[in-house]
């Protein structure tokens, strides 16, 4: 069964986000020979049109409106409903991002649609769209399907392997009407100092109680900087006040799947493992050779993180300079 699949793209700092390419890749699969239609919010967009075409979009709606520069649920919901009304898609896909997870349930509720959120894979089987998603923060998984013809999924970043499918998209400027926006964003404070977001970071250097203080995170940040990564933390470190809760990884906190996860002074409580054990490669550094974190680590170093981490930073610096 071929489908028309609508993808809501997302940009950050003028560039399409990685999860948008993953959404397009998933859309090509779900389309089963049908059409992939992309939506771009914003103005300056010739590059982005080319990019979404490279990953399979054959039609691109370009939507420009003052109320869409900054996300609010009311404005985005109205714009999305108008585009969905125009395209009448069989399936809708977007990233499970700060925006996607916030607006998709509203749009689904308004349209009376089922929604499968936070999918790590999307496929089709015997004419049905199936979402695969972690539950209990990844301790288990579930497969879900839709009742009714239309499907709507949000996708977790860093899980779907990109596949190009070059198209030359038709560009369609599209006007939307937005009124009665009830919540307004007065100010945005950018907090992620290095600019690398935890949920999309390729490399995460994470600290637990073993880091001992806020100051103790400094060597971890230095290692993360050398690797172009982000710093995370366990609940233990957050509860102890060593760092902000925004950095917490685990069943409460963020679930991450970077290419490389370096756990420093983290013992590996079940609730933390749930948040990181699906990282591609896990390195554990801990004084206690019996720490459960070593059970999920690909490489372990038994030792004091304050000795190991700076040496690791130096060794990576040398290795990366040689490249």
């Amino acid at each position: 069964m071929s489908r028309t699949v609508l993808v809501f793209t997302e940009q950050k700092d003028g560039r399409l986000r990685h999860v948008t390419y993953e959404s397009l890749t998933a859309a090509c699969r779900v389309a089963e020979g049908g059409e992939v239609v992309a939506v771009l919010f914003g103005s300056r967009q010739s590059e982005q049109v080319e990019e979404v075409g490279k990953y399979g979009a054959s039609r691109v709606y370009v939507v420009s409106h003052d109320d869409l520069h900054q996300y609010t649920p009311d404005a985005y919901k109205q714009a999305m409903l108008q585009i969905i009304g125009e395209v009448d898609p069989d399936a809708i896909i977007m990233g499970h991002t700060a925006i996607g997870k916030d607006v998709a349930p509203r749009v689904a509720a308004r349209l009376g649609l089922g929604l499968i959120t936070d999918c790590t894979d999307v496929c089709t089987d015997s004419g049905e769209v199936i979402g695969v998603r972690p539950i209990y923060a990844g301790k288990a998984f579930q497969k879900k399907k839709f009742i009714g013809k239309k499907s709507f999924v949000t996708i977790r970043a860093n899980n779907i392997e990109l596949q190009e499918n070059a198209q030359t998209p038709a560009v369609i400027p599209f006007d939307v009407t937005i009124k009665d926006v009830r919540s307004v964003v007065r100010k945005v404070i950018r907090r992620s100092a290095s600019g690398v977001d935890l949920s999309e970071a390729n490399v995460i250097v994470s600290g637990g109680r073993g880091v001992k203080s806020a100051e103790g995170f400094r060597p971890l940040q230095e290692l993360a900087d050398v690797l172009g990564g982000a710093v995370g933390a366990s609940r233990g470190a957050c509860d102890a006040g060593y760092c902000d809760y925004a950095l917490q990884i685990g069943q409460t906190g963020k679930v991450v799947t970077p290419e490389l996860y370096i756990a420093c002074g983290i013992s590996g409580a079940i609730q933390h493992l749930a948040g990181m054990s699906r990282s591609k490669i896990v390195v554990a550094i801990n004084k206690d050779p019996e720490a459960p974190i070593f059970q999920v680590a690909d490489y372990g170093i038994v030792g004091d993180l304050f000795q190991v981490v700076p040496k690791l930073t130096e060794a990576f610096k040398r290795a990366l300079e040689e490249k």
């Binding site: 700060a98 925006i99 964003v185 100010k187 945005v188 950018r190």
Partner: peptide, 15 residues
């Protein structure tokens, strides 16, 4: 909390 950034949001009640 928007992925690490903080947005100051105002809304009417009920909310």
């Amino acid at each position: 909390d928007a992925e690490g950034d903080t947005e100051a949001v105002e809304s009417t009640l009920p909310v």
